[in-house]
């Protein structure tokens, strides 16, 4: 694993993108790693495009600024692909994980990514509806991001999802989210 992994999340207000970044940070604490998770704050409205960031590092994280050159780009809402350039500043070996029902090859063409960059897709919205009962794609995206990056053990990630949702939600919702994480991990496709 690289010394430091920098992730940029693109989502829309209300999809749980910031929560996903937070849960991932918590899970990555395992093995004594250092973590950061922080959103970009603007006028907060449901549906408005937002970004959130993660840094995970073996070394102490001292910098306090947005990620400009992410190694991982997670797009929680595919409509953002038409609105903003999610590939901006991404590293040459960056990994993209997109919530869409489309084939990764089609998305690759649309994003105009470099041959050295990898594209993964997963229909996180559909999986969310089937597992949680509504379009809340963040948990499924966590599973997919974890498959694409291998950033943390699945058991640790599942434990953390359980822990952070367990404080707020009923067992049914927690189970749904855990199922979504697993299905995201299993069903994400590379192309």
């Amino acid at each position: 694993m690289a010394e430091m992994i920098e992730i940029r999340w693109h989502g829309r207000g209300g999809q749980g993108t910031v929560t996903a970044a937070k849960v991932l940070a918590d899970a990555c604490l395992s093995g004594g790693r250092n973590v950061q998770a922080f959103p970009e704050y603007g006028p907060e409205r449901a549906g408005a495009p937002l970004r959130a960031y993660n840094r995970v590092s073996e070394k102490i994280l001292r910098m306090h600024c947005p990620v400009l050159n992410p190694g991982v780009v997670a797009v929680v809402d595919a409509t953002l692909l038409d609105a903003i350039n999610v590939a901006e500043g991404a590293k040459d070996d960056a990994v993209f994980i997109i919530n869409t029902g489309k084939d990764p090859k089609d998305v690759r063409l649309k994003l105009k990514v470099k041959p050295t960059q990898k594209v993964f897709t997963v229909d996180a919205s559909k999986i969310a509806v089937e597992t949680i009962g509504r379009n809340m794609p963040n948990s499924c995206m966590l599973g997919a991001v974890n498959r694409a990056t291998g950033i943390v053990g699945m058991d640790v990630l599942l434990d953390d999802v359980k822990g952070s949702f367990g404080k707020k939600f009923a067992q049914k919702i927690i189970d749904g989210n855990l199922a979504a994480v697993k299905r995201g991990y299993e069903e994400v496709k590379e192309g």
Binding site: L29, V35, A37, H64
Partner: peptide, 12 residues
């Protein structure tokens, strides 16, 4: 401490 940069960011 710095607003948002620290107050709203998760760190270990």
């Amino acid at each position: 401490m710095d607003g948002f940069i620290i107050s709203h960011s998760i760190e270990s």
